[in-house]
Design a protein around this nucleic acid. Structure first.
Lengths: 255, 255
DNA sequence: TCCTAAACTGACGAGTAGTCAATAAAGGCC
DNA sequence: GGCCTTTATTGACTACTCGTCAGTTTAGGA
């Protein structure tokens, strides 16, 4: 199984060249703020994020935090950007998989699954930002960064679809663009994950293994578009389990 | 086109039998609190909901609001329950459509679309409740009510799928249950709507008409399951536009 | 060693959720 | 109506949190 491992993430404590002790101190502190914030969000959502408590935990005063981030929302957005960056690295690695395009796409799906499993706070933060009206309070620079990341993630996947079309494995009907297929996969993924994480009676409703159902549905959608090899011709389930355990291990993408 | 119109919603101002003037006053006030809260949420999300401002707007003191709702979160959950109730009425009407089961399912899809278009606050509130950790702060009674509604909505749709299987239009593969198909449609719907409402650069990304894409993807998924009539054999788009304009007009379901 | 710029601090202002003792209204009874 | 008990209503108050900023400390060059 051919895998292309992305460059290992630069660990925060590694000194950067041409960086004064003070600069390094500041950079490390910023990382600590984000780490502490992430835990608080994972614990109690948006309301669990508390500036005074961050200050206490990093053992600096509140004012110092505001030298790093204009406000609470900027912290959230910074966390989202981390999330998007991590996912992008995972997606790029997935898209580099060597095989038929639909199999490459399934690899991206496995990456998306692994992303939520390894980094649940990333997923949660993204969801909070999508739901709240925190957008207005954040700086245009960070907003732009987020949009760029999102677009770039999308492009990575769209290219796989385009390649599939060019290879003749998939012929899209009149008026359907590759972006729409990606939008479909993205929707199923996002919707299924949100339902799984917010509906604690899924079992009662009749969904025992939401991740498996998510996969099945994504594959049926691609079958519906007639993308070969169809899910009856290739064991996508086994493939996804395989790459998830090999290519998308936690250590390879943790920051 | 056979349509079954649900019972018209009981307007809040209609007097209930055996109800004292005082009781009616209280019931009306509760409706007003929710109406005002809904507007505030639509305006500024969860943070836009302000107890003092609600009090000022309904011209009662804050303490009185707390006689109706234990806390802010209970107001949110009450709004969600209204939303689920409305959607359920729309779904039941849709499922009552007379035609092949897959067409009935498409009718439910049209209902879901109309729901978001007519009642955007309902959708927004649901999203907020899914994202925030407000669950813990709310009373078990309301939680249960919400779960019951959600389950019942699911059941309505599952029955359509089961009927399709029984009719021989759809044969599910080994180990796939009707609930999973519904879960798939639900995921696409939820995911697509959330992306549409939270990503303001969708056009740049290449999605000009997200609702159309949502429909296409749902239908391709059902095609992937081989549910007849396939989307190549029936004009689901025209059907959905038709019923949306006829069966799911705003006035028929507004409360 | 001194001096200036940068970093850091925490008390404070402003705003908001939720409480509760005091007050007002309702409704039963004579 | 007048009296009394119960229920409803009020808004000042507490507790908590975000974000600010004048005053203080630290860093590092001259």
């Amino acid at each position: 199984m051919a895998v292309s491992i992305p460059p290992p993430p630069l660990h925060a404590e590694t000194p950067r060249p041409g960086e004064s002790r003070k600069q390094r101190e500041i950079r490390l502190r910023e990382a600590r703020i984000l780490a502490v914030a992430r835990d608080q969000i994972l614990e109690g959502g948006y309301l669990g994020l508390n500036m005074d408590r961050i200050a206490a935990q990093i053992e600096y005063s509140k004012g110092t935090i505001y030298q790093h981030f204009r406000n609470k929302e900027e912290i959230l957005l910074a966390l989202v950007n981390d999330a998007l960056d991590t996912r992008q690295r995972m997606f790029r690695a997935a898209a580099g998989f060597d095989g038929p395009d639909r199999v490459r796409l399934a690899t991206v799906g496995a990456a998306a699954e692994a992303f939520v499993e390894h980094f649940p706070y990333h997923f949660k933060v993204e969801q909070i930002v999508r739901a709240s009206s925190i957008w207005e309070k954040t700086s245009p620079e960070r907003q732009q960064l987020m949009q760029t990341c999102e677009k770039s993630c999308m492009t990575t996947v769209v290219e796989v679809v385009q390649h599939g079309v060019a290879a003749g494995d998939l012929s899209l009907p009149e008026g359907v663009r590759p972006e729409e297929v990606v939008f479909g996969l993205w929707s199923v993924y996002l919707g299924a994950q949100i339902i799984s994480h917010s509906s604690d009676t899924l079992g009662e409703i009749g969904i025992d293994n939401p991740i498996r159902s998510l996969r099945t549905n994504q594959h049926r959608m691609l079958d519906g578009y007639g993308w070969r090899p169809l899910s009856s011709q290739f064991d996508y389930m086994a493939h996804m389990d395989g790459v998830k355990a090999e290519m998308f291990r936690y250590e390879l993408f943790a920051t």
